[in-house]
Computed example of a mutant assay.
Amino acid sequence: MTAYIVFQRESTIDQQALDRYMERADGTLATHDVQALVDYGRHEVLEGPPVEGVVILAFPDAAAAKDWYLGEEYQEVVKNRFQGAIYRAVLVDGVDAGTLH
Rank of each mutant, 00 (worst) to 15 (best):
M1A: 02
M1W: 09
M1G: 11
T2Y: 14
A3E: 03
Y4P: 08
I5E: 04
V6Y: 03
Q8G: 09
Q8N: 04
R9P: 10
E10Y: 07
E10A: 13
D14H: 01
D14E: 03
D14W: 03
Q16P: 01
Q16N: 00
A17K: 00
R20F: 07
Y21H: 07
E23T: 12
R24G: 09
A25D: 08
D26L: 14
D26M: 14
G27I: 14
T28H: 15
T31P: 04
H32A: 03
D33F: 12
D33L: 02
V34H: 02
Q35P: 07
A36T: 11
A36H: 02
V38T: 03
D39E: 14
Y40G: 08
G41H: 09
H43G: 15
E44C: 12
V45G: 00
L46P: 04
E47D: 14
E47V: 10
P49V: 14
P49D: 12
P50S: 05
P50Y: 02
G53H: 11
V54L: 11
V55H: 06
I56N: 09
I56L: 12
L57A: 01
L57T: 08
L57R: 00
L57W: 06
A58H: 08
F59C: 10
F59G: 08
F59K: 05
P60F: 08
D61S: 01
A62L: 04
A63N: 14
A65H: 05
D67I: 11
L70H: 08
G71A: 02
E72W: 10
Y74T: 13
V77T: 09
V78L: 05
V78I: 09
N80A: 06
R81N: 12
R81T: 07
R81M: 04
F82I: 09
G84R: 00
G84P: 00
G84M: 00
A85S: 12
A85T: 05
Y87A: 00
Y87S: 11
R88L: 07
R88V: 08
A89Q: 02
V90H: 01
V95I: 15
V95F: 15
V95L: 14
D96A: 09
D96F: 11
D96E: 15
A97S: 15
H101P: 15
H101W: 15
